[in-house]
Design a binder for these strands. Structure first.
Lengths: 149, 149
DNA sequence: CTACGTGCAAATAATTTGCAGAGGA
DNA sequence: TCCTCTGCAAATTATTTGCACGTAG
């Protein structure tokens, strides 16, 4: 019921940005609402979405992901595997979260922290650089892939 | 004279890894020793290197950059502009450095800090994740591109 | 009704690879 | 000599775009 609300809110967000709410966009949106915690590539979204709507084209998926990232519904991520990955944005829940990327299985988990706010202030003064965003990734081995196992 | 030494050291490093020291690899290496502070794409390296050795092929540049990154001479970077960028590694000089990426002119500068060491310890315990490396980027506007100007 | 959206296929762009000849160790 | 390198062109991979048709508002 809470997720239903999220879905409707985003449809309105689309309309406010004068984007039309098409079946394809709805299908993709549903997908993300059901996989709030995943980091999916365009190809993966395409595969998952084809079950519900086999007619959909890959180009439409790319175009929709772009729009959803543009209006802040999705966050684009680059984990260095050569494809862009998208995650559902839950801006209200956390200030910032960083990613823990397993070098063996490729799984991505999250880590909350707002330590970097203070660093940004230091950078602004020390380097005359106006920070507007940051991106912190930790590479290593998750508990499943840990060398000690 | 100090850079000369660096060049010779790397040639030996190549030999130790049973890579041959070819003219092409030497040319590319020279390039980086002369541009220690830059973050170059394969295409850019190719262009710069063609002046000294017009015969060189782009594929060779890619292959050489891969090798040099593999033996720790170069560091691969992804600043989100769709191409991999390589910088000369000066491991001895700093523990870690992070990047400040200007969203307007695309220039990349550096920032030294080792604050994250302590964070890594927290992550290991809290998330059962064995951290082996991290990557921190700040996006914003450099002093030239600052909105206040 | 009309501008925006869609599917498809072709176009880009960065990088990789197969292969036959060249050249370091 | 011999196995690694190289240049070239063709192959791959992720993403974008042109176009004629379809449809949300």
């Amino acid at each position: 019921m809470e997720n239903m609300g999220a879905f409707e809110n985003i449809c309105n967000l689309l309309r406010n940005h004068s984007y039309k709410v098409t079946p394809q966009r709805q299908t993709i949106l549903h997908m993300f609402v059901e996989h709030v915690d995943r980091h999916l590539s365009a190809e993966e979204v395409y595969m998952l979405v084809k079950n519900e709507n086999p007619e959909i084209g890959l180009a439409t998926v790319y175009r929709t992901l772009d729009i959803l990232a543009d209006i802040g519904v999705l966050i684009k991520n680059d984990f260095g595997d050569g494809r862009t990955r998208y995650e559902f944005s839950r801006k209200d829940e956390h200030h910032h979260h960083h990613h823990l990327i397993c070098l063996k299985c490729g799984n991505v988990s999250e880590f909350d922290d707002d330590l970097l706010e203070s660093l940004e202030a230091v950078i602004m003064k020390r380097n005359h650089f106006k920070v507007s965003d940051h991106d912190l990734k930790f590479y290593g081995y998750c508990s499943n892939c840990d060398g000690t196992q």
